[in-house]
Design a protein around this nucleic acid. Structure first.
Lengths: 135, 135
DNA sequence: GTTGACTTGTGAGTTACTCACAGGTTTAGC
DNA sequence: GCTAAACCTGTGAGTAACTCACAAGTCAAC
């Protein structure tokens, strides 16, 4: 398979496939007659794994580590379990700050409906922002 | 004021103050006897504005544009109103994908409690990830 | 006068791609 | 057989908003 074929099969861009190849997560054979990469069944499975892991919130670095463990013949499952707990906790944190941000923003949007526009002064750029009463 | 003084006043790191200075959002005077930056009242107001805007989800680039408008003597308020509506919409989108991610992750955590660890094979790195039944 | 705690400007690292580029290859149509 | 379009290669750079590191200069306290 050429890069575009593999990309199409898994509904991603050829550039992403090239990226995973560049960083060594995919290891296609090289067609020596034309220099093209030749992706096989193994690469497709591997890419599928990568995409599943990404969907679950694992980072590229996580994925490299998981693969590294598996390559040594050990089960990566315990590591994967630990990791997802960590990543979930981080996601919860992000989630919480995003909730707060969203609240602030929509509060501002509401409050500002009652406010006029003002010209800037030496001490003030935008009174909306500067005088916003955050919760 | 020196960099650390200003940083301490607004509870951020000296490095952040240096960063805002480096990209031109702050313009301290230069003490020519020692080369140190000398931040004044104006810089403190400016930094306060920057931090307020960042808290409301504006990007550094947004802030530069807002300041640019104010520097031309025009009111940046209409622009600011448009911008926050846009940024809020983006935040909602991020929020929605984060909600989905969080669901997936905690679903995985739950499902995996029933699953054993497995050794990797030629076709499988981690069955937990590969066989995860996402919603 | 020495030590420790500052300061400067600048370069690089962070994440996971995405885009661009110069140059080589393949394919379809004529 | 020829040409143009559409592919492929490896690599460098761009993204956001800091954060860290470094070499070299300065200041404060003892």
């Amino acid at each position: 398979m050429k890069v575009t074929d593999l990309a199409r099969k898994l509904s991603i861009t050829p550039d992403s496939v090239r990226y995973y190849t560049r960083i060594g997560l995919l290891n296609p054979r090289k067609n020596h007659t034309n220099g093209y990469r030749d992706y096989g069944q193994r690469d497709q499975l591997r890419l599928n794994f990568i995409l599943s892991a990404r969907q679950l919130g694992f980072s590229i670095d996580d994925i490299e580590q998981i693969i590294g463990i598996a390559n040594q013949g050990e089960t990566p499952c315990p590591f994967v379990r630990e990791l997802i707990a960590q990543r979930l906790a981080e996601t919860e944190e992000k989630f919480n700050s995003l909730v707060k941000l969203r609240e602030q923003m929509s509060l501002a949007l509401t409050q500002w409906k009652e406010e006029p526009n003002k010209e800037p002064t030496a001490d003030m750029i935008c009174h909306l922002i500067e005088n916003f009463e955050h919760g």
